[in-house]
Design a protein around this nucleic acid. Structure first.
Length: 416
DNA sequence: TCTGGGGTCCTAGGACCC
DNA sequence: TCTGGGGTCCTAGGACCC
């Protein structure tokens, strides 16, 4: 049996932990640049705040209902994620951290509701974060059980321990809410009269294979309790590493784009070194504002192949800046830029080039030193000149909460 | 005025090989 | 007149996830 632990309204819950005034109050968290709603407390959901909605569209609603608004605070959420996962790991032998707020656990041996309830209480007590737990024979069914646990139980835990129960649940569960069936596929299925999870499970497998991909077939098997997506216990290296940002205000200036793209490339290289990998290609993209139909849309993208796999900041930044020069056109107002590193290979599998002129050992030592300074003293303490003034370029975050758990100056004081 | 960021996997079609 | 058969690899685009 597999258990899925899912933090309830995760970012909103993190904001609440050190701010008890927010209890039972509507809370929302915004994306970068305070753009869109990316998390909502139950109270905010009840007021009709939709996921992904641009903040400016619900200004009235926010004032009218006194909704508590927060800018995204990833230092805080990342730290809480780690705490929650640490607590869970004290209770299980094997677990797969699936996302910032979810984990699949091996519950074989002792898969009972009370085990889930005890775990849930422990996480709440030790971290302050409420979670829901779904227990079932497969991941797909565990996701479904988790959804039921969140919406329809008081205990926050739901277990699929019998075939009849699964059948009854599938019969009322909409096909579009199955894990892995997205909007597009749900629409297609609806056209064939398939609206519930049970109808999907009872479809002819050959028909599914012909009209959809292998994934949908696997999902169908998982609904029949056949494991197609086993627990993944080893942490996988990322195959692509991306850093991209929207700008608060659009720009046509090449210099500003250089600073941005240089910074994103440097950030990607740092992430790459962190997972002990090298990349073999660097791609850069730009984008104008897609929400302005009156302005022409321009979305160029270019991939540069590297001779030698590398994770050297300067080399990657250089490649990114050359690419930028090649796609830049001064006739457009750019709203977003990004860098993607691809062809990622483990550091130790590096294929050297016959014509390489770089002293790679020297560069490695330099990068290592920079990484160490930045990890000890705070990010961007040392950066490349081409990045410009990194502190000046901060994104808009008007409602940022303190970094209660990751910055000494933000730690709460208890006054007696 | 104001619309996020970071990933994975699958498939079809083209280029290429012998 | 009549023009094969069996592969691999790469890429773009699309779907999905959080």
């Amino acid at each position: 049996m597999i258990a899925l632990v899912d933090c309830n309204n995760f970012y909103a819950s993190c904001e609440r932990v050190f701010n008890p005034k927010l209890k039972d109050r509507p809370v929302i968290v915004l994306s970068n640049n305070d753009g869109c709603v990316i998390a909502r407390s139950n109270e905010a959901k009840q007021l009709g705040v939709k996921m992904g909605c641009p903040a400016f569209k619900i200004k009235d609603l926010i004032t009218r209902h006194n909704i508590n608004v927060f800018s995204t605070n990833f230092a805080l959420y990342g730290d809480f994620s780690k705490r929650v996962m640490d607590v869970i790991s004290t209770e299980v032998e094997k677990m797969e951290i699936y996302s910032i707020d979810e984990a699949f656990l091996d519950f074989s041996g002792y898969a009972e509701k009370k085990r889930g309830i005890a775990l849930r209480q422990k996480v709440k007590k030790w971290t302050g974060i409420p979670v829901s737990i779904g227990i079932a024979p497969t991941k797909t069914l565990a996701k479904l059980a988790g959804a039921i646990a969140k919406k329809h139980t008081k205990s926050g835990v739901f277990i699929f321990d019998d075939g009849n129960l699964i059948r009854r649940a599938l019969n009322i569960f909409p096909v579009e809410d199955i894990w892995g069936i997205g909007r597009k596929n749900a629409k297609k299925l609806n056209l064939f009269g398939i609206t519930t999870a049970l109808q999907f499970r009872e479809c002819d497998s050959n028909w599914i294979r012909r009209n959809f991909s292998i994934n949908e077939l696997n999902i169908q098997k998982e609904l029949y309790m056949e494991i197609r997506y086993p627990l993944e216990l080893t942490q996988k290296r990322r195959k692509n590493i991306c850093t991209s940002r929207s700008f608060g205000v659009g720009t046509t200036e090449l210099l500003k784009l250089k600073e941005a793209v240089g910074s994103y490339a440097n950030n990607c290289a740092t992430k790459l070194r962190y997972q002990k990998s090298c990349c073999t290609n660097v791609s850069v993209f730009l984008s104008t504002n897609p929400f302005k139909p009156c302005e022409p849309y321009y979305n160029p993208h270019i991939v540069t192949q590297l001779d030698v796999p590398t994770n050297d900041s300067m080399e990657i930044v250089k490649a990114a800046l050359i690419a930028l020069n090649n796609i830049y056109n001064d006739q457009y107002i750019y709203k977003k830029a990004g860098v993607i590193l691809g062809g990622v290979v483990p550091q130790e599998h590096m294929q050297l080039s016959l014509f390489d002129s770089l002293d790679r050992t020297k560069r490695q030592n330099l990068n290592k030193a920079v990484d160490r300074v930045n990890s000890l003293m705070g990010r961007d303490k040392v950066y490349l000149a081409v990045q410009g003034n990194v502190r000046k370029r901060r994104v808009k975050q008007e409602k940022l909460s303190p970094c209660y758990t990751t910055r000494f100056s933000d730690i709460l004081e208890v006054v007696i």
